[in-house]
């Protein structure tokens, strides 16, 4: 396993610092000395800003980063391929396709419901397609095929869309945390929390899968079934956040790479990435907000090139 760029303490510290920065930085800047009064206040601008806007946004950034980072780790480990990204599970493209269809045809469904439904259907389709896959490579191919089909639906619907719809659509195409509320966090959290113990339980199976399918089977694991289970957990993790903030491009690729192994580290790296990227996204061009997914995609390219030599 490649070595990590940062130890667990450094990662924990980064999460705390970026989390604090996320609730402090912005217009107006709320300093550490005013943070507690703002939290305790019954009302007022700073209270509303910190409690109703910045805090839920930071919480969802943390949750989304952790979920996508963990899902990326599960995928890359179970398929033994650094290019196995959560986007290949069909979950985020399913959500994006469903939202696009709902927006373009002005269907009378809440976007959140459409996204959740699309995420579920996309993930289920992929799992169905890979149920009989013979090995990691055919799993990847089947996943890519389902994703491509959903992308086609998305593009077809998108070509019919109005310019007014672009804001909503870019959220689900690239990922964005703009306008996050506590409702988003509280609906995402239970699914992620339910999937988390299964992700931890999958760790020993992932270790055994490193031996290759033949040796893994002779050690007592059913490789196909184990892989399917791991991917189902990854689907649930991605689905828990993608309905709220879109795919946040490439976090699932980048976080496990930066972590250099380990489920917890991948989740922590994901949280750091999304918190940091979202902080940039809403400050660099203030008052214009960039979609956070655009920034993470750029970061992924840079980090990918920088670390390419370390990878096997």
């Amino acid at each position: 396993m490649p070595r990590s760029l940062a130890g667990p303490w450094a990662l924990g510290l980064a999460v705390v610092v970026l989390g604090l920065a996320a609730v402090m930085v912005g217009q107006p800047f709320v300093g550490l000395n005013r943070l507690v009064p703002a939290l305790l206040a019954a009302d007022g601008l700073e209270h509303a800003l910190v409690v109703q806007s910045r805090a839920p946004r930071a919480a969802l950034a943390l949750l989304a980063g952790a979920a996508l980072g963990a899902a990326g780790h599960l995928l890359q480990e179970s398929l033994r391929n650094p290019l196995a990204v959560p986007e290949l599970l069909g979950v985020s493209s399913g959500a994006a396709a469903a939202v696009t269809v709902a927006v373009v045809f002005t269907l009378p469904v809440p976007l959140l419901a459409a996204a959740a439904l699309g995420a579920g259907v996309g993930g289920a389709l992929t799992l169905l397609a890979i149920r009989r896959a013979a090995g990691p490579d055919s799993v990847l191919l089947a996943g890519a095929a389902v994703s491509a089909a959903l992308q086609a639906v998305l593009l077809a619907a998108h070509s019919l869309s109005d310019t007014r719809d672009q804001g909503v659509l870019s959220r689900y195409l690239l990922g964005s945390l703009t306008g996050t509320t506590w409702t988003d966090v509280l609906t995402a959290l239970p699914i992620a929390a339910l999937a988390a113990p299964f992700a931890v339980l999958a760790v020993p199976a992932l270790r055994v899968l490193r031996l290759g399918d033949e040796a893994a089977a002779s050690a007592g694991l059913r490789p196909g079934r184990a892989r399917l289970g791991v991917l189902a957990v990854a689907c649930a993790l991605v689905a828990s956040v993608v309905a709220h903030c879109g795919p946040v491009a490439w976090v699932g690729f980048l976080a496990p790479r930066l972590a250099g192994g380990g489920l917890g580290r991948a989740a922590a790296c994901g949280a750091v990435l999304v918190l940091g990227a979202d902080l940039l996204a809403r400050t660099v061009l203030y008052p214009v907000e960039l979609p956070v997914g655009g920034l993470t995609a750029v970061l992924a390219v840079v980090a990918g090139l920088l670390t390419a030599r370390r990878w096997r």
């Binding site: 033994r80 290759g212 033949e214 040796a215 002779s218 007592g220």
Partner: peptide
């Protein structure tokens, strides 16, 4: 599968690089 593995151990012809 686990019951079998407690009774029979196999050394396959080749194994991928596990990084372990």
């Amino acid at each position: 599968r686990r019951d079998i593995a407690r009774r029979i151990a196999v050394l396959p012809q080749s194994m991928p690089d596990s990084g372990l």
